[in-house]
C-alpha cells in the first residue's frame, strides 16, 4: 500500500461528496454528502500523517515534534465538529420544515432578488 492510493481514495470520497452537496435537492442528502466530504479529508489527513512522520520512536528523544500525531488529532477534531455540525444542521432542517413544510433546499431561496 502506498500513500498515493490513500490520497486517491480521499479525493474520490471528497469528489463524490461534493457532487452530492451540489446536486441533491433533499437537505438530508446534502448533509450526508457533506459527511462523505469530511471523511475524504479524514482519510487524507491520517494517511499523510502516517506516511510522512516516522512510525517508531527512536531511543533518544532528540526532536519531539517528529512524533506528533498531527493528522490523527485533526481527524478526531473533524469527527467531533462534524457530529456537532450535523446536530445543528438537522435542527435547522427541522426548523425549515416546520415553517414551509418542505426540506428541499431549492425551496429556500429568500435571498434571490
Amino acid at each position: 500500500m502506498t500513500l498515493e492510493r490513500f490520497l486517491i481514495l480521499g479525493a474520490i470520497l471528497f469528489g463524490i461528496g461534493l457532487y452530492g452537496v451540489l446536486s441533491k435537492k433533499h437537505a438530508i442528502a446534502v448533509l450526508m454528502s457533506l459527511e462523505i466530504m469530511f471523511n475524504g479529508v479524514n482519510v487524507t489527513a491520517v494517511a499523510l500523517s502516517r506516511y510522512t512522520v516516522p512510525y517508531t520512536v527512536p531511543d533518544t528523544f532528540v526532536d519531539a515534534s517528529r512524533f506528533l500525531l498531527t493528522g490523527h488529532v485533526f481527524t478526531v477534531f473533524i469527527i467531533t465538529v462534524a457530529a456537532a455540525e450535523v446536530a445543528l444542521g438537522l435542527a435547522i432542517i427541522i426548523a425549515i420544515y416546520r415553517t414551509r413544510q418542505s426540506v428541499l433546499i431549492t425551496d429556500a431561496k429568500e435571498l434571490s432578488r
Partner: peptide, 17 residues
C-alpha cells in the same frame, strides 16, 4: 449583476467550487 442573484445555495456553492 443582480441577475446572478438566484437565491439557490447550490448554485453559489457550485460557482465557488
Amino acid at each position: 449583476i443582480r441577475e446572478l442573484q438566484t437565491g439557490q445555495t447550490q448554485m453559489y456553492a457550485t460557482v465557488t467550487s
